[in-house]
Amino acid sequence: MSRIIDSLLKRFDKAVEANVRSSARSYGRRSFLATTGTVLAGAAAGLPILPFDRRANAATGDEAADPCSYWRQCAIDGFVCEESGGSITQCPPGTSTSAVSWVGTCMNPDDNKNYLISYNDCCGKQAVFGATFCNNNKGERPGYRMGLYNDINWCMANTDKGYHCTVSIVMGQAE
Rank of each mutant, 00 (worst) to 15 (best):
G42M: 11
C91M: 06
A34C: 01
D121M: 14
V103A: 08
V167A: 02
D53F: 07
T166M: 07
S31G: 12
N137E: 14
G86W: 02
S87I: 03
G139E: 03
S23E: 03
L8K: 12
A41N: 12
S7D: 08
A174Q: 15
R145C: 06
D13N: 13
P93D: 08
R30P: 00
I88P: 00
C155K: 04
N158D: 09
A15G: 08
S22P: 00
E175A: 14
T132L: 02
G172S: 08
M1E: 11
A131K: 00
T60N: 07
R54V: 12
Y144P: 01
A24K: 15
N135D: 12
A45P: 02
S22R: 15
A43C: 13
S26D: 08
V100I: 13
P92M: 05
S96P: 00
F12I: 11
S23W: 08
F79L: 08
E83M: 04
G147K: 04
Y27E: 04
H164T: 07
S84Q: 09
T35A: 13
M1K: 00
L50T: 13
I169C: 01
D6A: 15
Q126T: 12
L50Q: 13
G172F: 06
R54M: 12
G172A: 05
G104N: 04
A157N: 08
Y163L: 06
G46E: 12
T97H: 00
T35S: 11
G130P: 01
A64M: 11
V170A: 05
C106A: 09
V100A: 14
D62S: 15
A59M: 14
G94E: 00
Y163I: 02
M1L: 09
G37K: 09
T38W: 06
A75V: 01
V100R: 14
V20N: 11
V128H: 03
N57Y: 15
S84P: 04
D160C: 00
I76D: 03
M156N: 07
A44T: 11
V100K: 11
A65V: 11
Q173F: 00
V103Y: 09
R145F: 14
I88V: 14
F79Q: 14
I88L: 13
L50K: 12
I49F: 12
T38D: 06
A99P: 00
N137V: 13
N153Y: 00
M107I: 09
D121V: 06
Y27F: 10
E83G: 04
G124F: 03
G139H: 07
A44R: 07
N114C: 00
D77A: 15
P51C: 09
P93H: 02
V128R: 10
N150S: 15
G147H: 04
C91S: 05
N153A: 01
A41T: 09
Y149A: 06
K138Q: 15
G46P: 05
G172Y: 07
V20E: 09
A64Q: 14
N158K: 07
F133I: 03
A45R: 11
K14Q: 13
N150A: 12
W154T: 01
A64Y: 10
A59Y: 01
S7H: 10
Q173G: 05
